[in-house]
Amino acid sequence: MSRIWIMPLAAALLIGCSEEKIPEPARPALYVVAQPELAQNLGRFAGTIEARYESTLGFRVPGRIVRRYYDVGAVVKQGDILASLDPTDQQNNLRAARGDLAKVQAQLINAKANARRQQELFDRGVGAQAQLDIAQTDLKTTQASMQQAVAAVNQAQDQLSYCTLRADHDAVITDWQAEAGQVVSVGEEVVTLARPDIKEAVIDLPGPLADALPTGIEFRVAGQLDPNVNTAAHVREIAPQADSATRTHRTRLTLSQTPAAFRLGSSVSVTVSSPIAEHFKIPLSALQETDNHSQVWVIDPTTHAVNPRDVTVLRRDAHNVLLSGGVKSGDKIVSAGVHSLNPGQTVRLDKESSQ
């Protein structure tokens, strides 16, 4: 009798075990972390670092360049000689002016002696008034000629000094427009100097953007070789006239800081952005739209359970969607397979996907 009862009991126990539900394994899920975007990217433009102050120098006298003392990129101090002309003509002019001065000096000595002699004769009553007047007039004329001759010598000396082109301030040579042996005229551009102490970034902005820059626009200047070297900037000057070929406006930006890596002529990348209300950009695959409303699946950070959350879509493109509300910074959002999820379902965090 005992065997008869034991067998049905064992069978019942086996049936009960077979009906017990086996827990479903957690499903792996790709996810993205919601990061707020507070600025709208308006574009990235290539630019260069240039000196804010540049000057182009030329000779003040015509002549043939006999020597250039520095090459492009050289650092010069105020007063350093940059180039020189053949001084032969100016030296001859100086010799002629000095000769004229010596001649007038001799004439002045004679005129003074004659005027003094005529004055003595007139004082003794043996000289005529007319002779005295002529002598005094000759003296004054010779004195005026003396002043003119001195001025001519000074001018000739200045002309000779102008054969030497000197730096008018501490600078870096950025360009030569004339070569040794070339004949230049007065004021013709010879060399360009840039002051290295104040630098700025120069870019070309498209016409529509340059004509209507948003309020609070931000510029971030970064090195092409090392983007980690960067600084903020603001507009100093926008060319009023667009380039005839590119239809862009040359824009000069004042740097908030000047990193040592920003050397004159170095290439930079300038990012232009405008502040906007907080929004979040997520992959389009993370968005689920049902019954005329949009939602995303948010992963609970403690239980790893997923639940839908309604969101407000600002705009979308072929790959991403921009949300203006519904999520918070740091939320983990499922980025793939959202149509097969159920509320409260537990997922295994596989890896964060790139946006």
Rank of each mutant, 00 (worst) to 15 (best):
residue 1 M to D: 13
residue 4 I to W: 10
residue 4 I to C: 05
residue 10 A to R: 03
residue 15 I to F: 13
residue 15 I to H: 10
residue 19 E to T: 15
residue 20 E to P: 06
residue 23 P to Y: 03
residue 24 E to V: 09
residue 26 A to T: 05
residue 26 A to Y: 03
residue 29 A to N: 10
residue 30 L to Y: 11
residue 31 Y to I: 01
residue 32 V to E: 02
residue 36 P to D: 10
residue 38 L to F: 04
residue 46 A to G: 15
residue 49 I to M: 01
residue 50 E to M: 06
residue 54 E to W: 03
residue 57 L to I: 03
residue 57 L to D: 02
residue 66 V to L: 14
residue 70 Y to K: 05
residue 73 G to A: 04
residue 79 G to V: 02
residue 81 I to G: 01
residue 82 L to K: 02
residue 87 P to S: 00
residue 92 N to P: 02
residue 94 L to R: 07
residue 95 R to K: 04
residue 99 G to Y: 06
residue 105 Q to P: 06
residue 106 A to M: 11
residue 118 Q to A: 12
residue 120 E to F: 06
residue 120 E to R: 09
residue 126 V to R: 06
residue 128 A to E: 02
residue 129 Q to G: 10
residue 134 I to G: 11
residue 141 T to C: 00
residue 143 Q to V: 01
residue 150 V to K: 15
residue 152 A to L: 15
residue 153 V to S: 07
residue 154 N to C: 07
residue 160 L to W: 00
residue 164 T to D: 01
residue 166 R to V: 08
residue 170 D to Q: 14
residue 172 V to R: 03
residue 177 Q to H: 13
residue 178 A to D: 05
residue 180 A to L: 08
residue 186 V to C: 11
residue 191 V to E: 02
residue 192 T to V: 14
residue 197 D to R: 03
residue 202 V to H: 02
residue 204 D to E: 10
residue 204 D to I: 02
residue 210 A to K: 05
residue 213 L to P: 07
residue 214 P to K: 02
residue 214 P to Q: 02
residue 215 T to K: 14
residue 215 T to V: 14
residue 216 G to F: 10
residue 219 F to V: 13
residue 219 F to P: 03
residue 220 R to N: 13
residue 221 V to L: 14
residue 222 A to C: 12
residue 223 G to Q: 01
residue 226 D to V: 09
residue 228 N to H: 02
residue 230 N to T: 15
residue 230 N to W: 14
residue 238 I to N: 05
residue 238 I to F: 02
residue 239 A to G: 14
residue 240 P to H: 09
residue 244 S to G: 09
residue 245 A to G: 13
residue 254 T to V: 09
residue 257 Q to P: 01
residue 258 T to A: 00
residue 258 T to W: 00
residue 260 A to S: 14
residue 266 S to L: 00
residue 267 S to D: 11
residue 269 S to K: 09
residue 270 V to K: 07
residue 271 T to I: 12
residue 271 T to A: 14
residue 278 E to Y: 08
residue 283 P to F: 04
residue 285 S to C: 00
residue 285 S to W: 00
residue 289 E to A: 13
residue 289 E to D: 12
residue 290 T to P: 00
residue 292 N to A: 10
residue 292 N to Q: 12
residue 294 S to H: 08
residue 298 V to K: 01
residue 300 D to F: 06
residue 300 D to V: 08
residue 302 T to S: 08
residue 304 H to S: 10
residue 306 V to E: 06
residue 307 N to A: 09
residue 313 V to S: 05
residue 317 D to F: 10
residue 319 H to S: 15
residue 324 S to D: 07
residue 324 S to P: 06
residue 326 G to Q: 01
residue 330 G to S: 07
residue 333 I to D: 01
residue 333 I to L: 01
residue 337 G to C: 12
residue 342 N to M: 12
residue 346 T to K: 15
residue 350 D to F: 14
